[in-house]
Design a protein around this nucleic acid. Structure first.
Length: 120
DNA sequence: CACATGACTGACT
DNA sequence: AAGTCAGCCATGT
């Protein structure tokens, strides 16, 4: 029926914040759901970040969701893209090597928002 | 209200 | 490194 997602105002803000952070991820770098949650002060709501990403594709502005993986560097969200291999292709297009659904050199490519988006 | 589900994580093995 | 478990929290039934 209604394809419109019902969200409380509180969660709308949360979604917007998540997208805002994801959009700041530089090309060729990746981060994790937990790191974003931590940066937003919701360290125990990492699942909610993934939940927010589920609606990223519906946003008017482009969200580089492929740059967000789980803590081990696994492409856990690949099945939610329009094509299962799209996530890998997008990452490789940015120079990120992907092997067996995992980001190679994940620890080196990891982009921590809490470090690069420090509050002053 | 109880229970299941999920783009997660940390601890433990 | 990889698998299992419990904790996590918003949604759906």
């Amino acid at each position: 029926m209604a394809s419109i997602i019902k969200l409380s105002e509180k969660n709308r803000d949360f979604f917007a914040l998540v997208y805002e952070v994801v959009k700041q991820i530089p090309e060729g770098r990746v981060t994790s759901y937990g790191a974003i949650a931590l940066y937003l002060g919701m360290a125990r709501s990492s699942r909610m970040v993934g939940w927010a990403m589920n609606s990223a594709h519906a946003q008017k502005e482009y969200i580089p969701a492929h740059r967000v993986v789980n803590r081990t560097g696994s492409l856990t969200g690949k099945l939610h893209f329009s094509h299962p291999d799209l996530m890998k292709e997008l990452l490789e297009a940015e120079g990120i090597q992907v092997e067996n659904d995992k980001v190679v050199n994940f620890t080196e490519l990891f982009w921590n928002p809490s470090v690069y988006l420090n509050f002053d």
